[in-house]
């Protein structure tokens, strides 16, 4: 589809820049969902947690005058809101689908309530894109990779930390065990409830960072509906990336591309209406699920085996 550069160079640079920007934002949220799901907890509250992160980050940034403090506050707010799901789905063993959806409704509602007085305010606090001197000045690459918001690099760094934590540490091993076979983790001396609460809290904090990315960097400010269904994309991305930190990163770029494309279809002379292009992430996810179901029939599935299954030790 990209043949012979029949469109302005700047449009392609703009597209790739935006793909990384949207990709990094969604990656933060997906990373959080991935961690929760690897511990065995499906949290469909991402949309709500992102909304809370968006409003919380914005409010605190305005009140303190610092986007970084806003970001910190957003992550705390996200973790706290996520603990509602933790309490119901993990501690009380309620159905995770119901509890997660209720969290989305709750989070979106509370964010709208909280944000009433801040709606439409033009913020003077927001993240400015970095300037890495000579690096940022390189043609093409400089604009695409080295003039992003600091949050993009934070997302990358957190991805590395998450990969190392999950795959190379004792805690990560335990967390994955809790998601694959809770009774095994329990017998080995790990607190399944503790591990899952931790994972849900981290998941909430990361989802909120994704939300704050929206309200403090991509489109600074708070408006009702700013998250606009991106929480569901984050949930989809985890499945698209087969619950693997690196594959989700790759998927995030692809989904970022798909999110950036609809507003630029004209520059690229693409067929179809831009709105049809905006369906791409969802269609891709469904396609991946169907392909996965068709291909992986003799191996254990990619999904954590205990995903969605509450754990309670002494029951007979």
């Amino acid at each position: 589809m990209i043949v012979g550069l029949a469109f302005p160079e700047t449009a392609l640079i703009g597209l790739l820049f935006a793909a990384i920007q949207f990709g990094a934002m969604i990656y933060l949220a997906s990373l959080g969902e991935l961690i929760a799901e690897r511990a065995g907890v499906l949290n469909l509250g991402v949309e709500g947690m992102m909304a809370m992160g968006a409003v919380g980050g914005f409010v605190f940034a305005i009140e303190t005058g610092s986007p970084w403090l806003g970001l910190l506050a957003a992550s705390i707010v996200g973790a706290l809101v996520a603990m509602i799901h933790g309490l119901f789905a993990v501690v009380l063993g309620a159905n995770q689908v119901v509890s997660g959806l209720a969290l989305t409704i709750f989070g979106v509602g509370l964010a709208n309530f909280w944000g009433t007085d801040y709606e439409g305010l033009r913020p003077d606090v927001q993240f400015v894109d970095v300037d890495l001197g000579p690096l940022s000045d390189i043609a093409w690459i400089g604009r695409i990779f080295f003039q992003q918001s600091p949050l993009a690099y934070l997302a990358l760094a957190l991805g590395c930390v998450a990969w190392f934590g999950l795959n190379r540490t004792r805690g990560g091993l335990a967390l994955r065990a809790a998601g694959e076979s809770a009774a095994t983790a329990d017998t080995a001396g790990h607190s399944v409830v503790g591990l899952r609460l931790f994972a849900v809290a981290i998941g909430g904090a990361l989802a909120a960072l994704g939300g704050a990315y929206l309200s403090l960097s991509i489109s600074p400010g708070w408006t009702v509906g700013v998250v606009a269904g991106r929480g569901w994309i984050a949930v989809a991305l985890v499945i698209f990336g087969a619950w693997k930190v690196r594959r989700v990163a790759l998927g995030a770029f692809l989904f970022g591309l798909a999110m950036a494309l609809p507003s630029r279809t004209e520059s690229f002379d693409l067929p179809w209406h831009p709105i049809l292009w905006s369906m791409l992430p969802y269609l891709l996810t469904i396609a991946v699920m169907i392909a996965g179901a068709l291909i992986l029939r003799n191996r254990p599935a990619d999904a954590p085996a205990a995903l969605g299954v509450p754990f309670r030790r002494e029951e007979r």
Partner: peptide, 18 residues
């Protein structure tokens, strides 16, 4: 083929809106 209906139905919400 046993595709998880939670996710497919969820995705189709977003597709319907669009």
């Amino acid at each position: 083929i046993g595709v998880n209906e939670i996710i497919t139905t969820l995705m189709l919400n977003e597709i319907a809106v669009r």
